[in-house]
Amino acid sequence: MSGLALETRALSKAFGALAVSQDINFKLEAGARHALIGPNGAGKTTFVNLVTGVFAPTSGRIFLGDEDVTTMPQARRVKRGLVRTFQISALFRKLTVLENVTLTISEREGVANDLFRPAGARRALIEEAYSLLEPLGLAAEALRPVSELAYGRQRMVEIAMALALKPKVLLLDEPAAGVPTTESATLVDMIEKLPKDIAVLFIEHDMELVFRVAKRITVLVQGAVLVEGTPAQIAGDPRVREVYLGERKHT
């Protein structure tokens, strides 16, 4: 099983009679740059929610590395390195950018149970948080409340917080949504510069970004895998052209 960061076997989810995920067999290689694409309502976010443990699957299994995590609670999967970002930013809005990331690192390191030493005394944690902000171009806004940032910048904070948890598998749910084109270059740059040992799966509508970053692409249609392959294979596949590339949508 070595070489796989994440695997699902025959993963299915139904809400009542509505099957939103059908028999998904999916493999994410270690160090992968893998994109999950598909038209609206294809069940991409549902898939992320199943993998991270927000929903319990109706049937099928989920493996993180060699370990079966199908029934493991969300927080424990986070501790094992399965980290996601959210499609709609979920940040500590009134706190500063640096505070958002520092809080996350404090939890990762388990120092947040300390009632005695001042938080500012743990300078190494703050330095680390700040170092995460710099490559994302957030340094200048480090001391501003998140709520004062433009939406695109908030997306960057979201990614900084995910990285702060030191993920092994990183799930990016539409990282480019709401990011203005002037900044999407920073985003692409950032994703390309992610440490090689992190396996990255991203859901994205921006095809330019998908084809620039992804080494493999999986196309999901109506809850099932339509096809999987390299970007060249996907771009040349007539079925994909038919269901997806024909109707470029940015949502």
Partner: peptide
Amino acid sequence: RNIVESPFGRSLTGIRENVNRMHAIGAP
């Protein structure tokens, strides 16, 4: 004052601001 300025105290403000996110970053 000591509590409020400690990492514990800071995590309380995180709970106040967005409790779901605190769960998501693995806080008890």
